[in-house]
Simulated scan of single mutants.
Amino acid sequence: MDKQLLALLVCPVTQSKLIYKKEQQELISKAAGLAFPIRDGIPVMLENEARTLTAEERLEK
């Protein structure tokens, strides 16, 4: 994931910062409680494509 692109991206729901999870290939929005997938190196920033974070994931730093 390109660091410059990551710096520009925000959650489409809350406009908050995103956390990049390389192993899961996801961008995490703690504020929205969503994980946006990265497919073939392209972030899919659609709410209906995101998965809901578990309670445990919401508490992780």
Rank of each mutant, 00 (worst) to 15 (best):
Q4L: 13
A31Y: 02
E26Q: 14
L46T: 00
L6Q: 13
I38W: 05
D40I: 00
I28M: 07
P43H: 08
A7L: 12
P37T: 05
E23V: 03
Q4P: 00
K3Y: 04
T52R: 15
T54S: 15
P43K: 08
Q4V: 12
T52A: 15
L53D: 10
L18W: 04
K3W: 04
G33H: 03
L59E: 15
L9W: 11
R39F: 00
P37R: 05
K61T: 11
I42C: 01
K3C: 02
A7F: 02
L53K: 10
I28E: 07
Q24I: 01
T52P: 03
V10H: 12
L9S: 13
L34W: 03
L18I: 09
L27P: 10
S29V: 03
I19H: 12
P37I: 03
K30T: 04
V44D: 08
A55D: 15
L8K: 14
L9F: 11
T54Q: 12
L8D: 13
C11T: 04
K30Q: 13
E49F: 09
E47R: 12
V44M: 14
P43A: 09
F36E: 06
G41Q: 03
A32W: 02
K30H: 13
A35H: 00
E26C: 06
P37W: 05
L6W: 09
I38H: 03
Q24Y: 10
E57I: 04
E56I: 05
P12H: 04
E26Y: 00
R39I: 14
V13N: 10
L46Y: 00
S29L: 02
Y20F: 15
I42G: 00
E56Q: 15
Q24V: 03
A32N: 01
Q25T: 04
F36V: 09
A35E: 01
P37D: 07
A31S: 14
G33S: 03
L6D: 08
E60P: 01
V13L: 11
Y20T: 02
L5C: 06
R51Y: 06
L34I: 09
I28N: 05
E26G: 02
P37A: 06
D2V: 00
E57H: 11
E60C: 06
V10A: 15
L5V: 13
S29R: 01
Q15M: 01
T54P: 13
I38C: 06
L53I: 11
I28T: 10
Q24G: 04
D2F: 02
V10R: 14
